[in-house]
Amino acid sequence: MSRWLVLFGKEWMEMTRSYKLLWVPLVFILFGAMQPVTTYFLPDILANAGNLPEGAVISIPLPTAEEVMAKTLEQFGTIGLLVIALSVMGAISAERTSGVTAIVLVKPISHLAYVSAKWAAMLALILIAFAGGFCAAWYYTAALFQGVAWQSSLIAYLLFALWLGFVGSLTLLFSALLRSGAAAAACALGIAAVLAVTASVFPKALAASPGMLPKAASAQFMDAASASHPWLAAAAALLVMAAVLAIAAWAVRRRPTLEA
């Protein structure tokens, strides 16, 4: 365990030195805060945008607080995923290229410990960043629209954080399997997109698909009844994450350096 903590400390230091611990949460907070604010000022923004004939009347119904929160989650589902995939993509492939992996694994450390320390650090980063963004969105929604019940918000946070962690784990896996970081990010985002789309097209058949998670998270704000079984999808996501760790550890064992 103490060895694992050393590895975790190394990952943490890497995240501080590369400023990930700073900019990822800041970006999440910015987007979380901006979504309610732009929604609130949308009529003003449209009115000032020009190109409208004199006397045109724009009437946009003010969305409810719940709709704003659901919309914010949608925002995190695109930009948030992109940011996470891009910041995780080099986790293993870059260290393999630079030879750090080989140096670390000279020590008596299991491959699984090496991968899982990375995974835990990534998960901590995601939880912190998304908590910041989610709180900012929650705060601004409460200030500009109306408060949202914290119980459903907490469940939505956990479900969506699991989805973000799931996609982050996929990125980590492809980072271990593939040579290029960009390809790893692209593969993970592609799979995430396919899962989310298929889950929204066949919600009944794919109730246990992790792709249900973002939908289930927004459904917490709309009507909790429609998301009756997000727990199956959550369990499936956790299982896949465990499998991803095992496969990534195997991939690192098989090819610790580029030359080998």
């Binding site: 900019w23 800041l26 970006v27 910015l30 805060a33 901006m34 604010v37 601004y140 200030a143």
Partner: peptide, 13 residues
């Protein structure tokens, strides 16, 4: 008060 925090975070970034 609404816009200042957002502007500050962006400035920090």
């Amino acid at each position: 008060t609404i816009l200042l925090p957002i502007a500050l975070i962006q400035l920090a970034l």
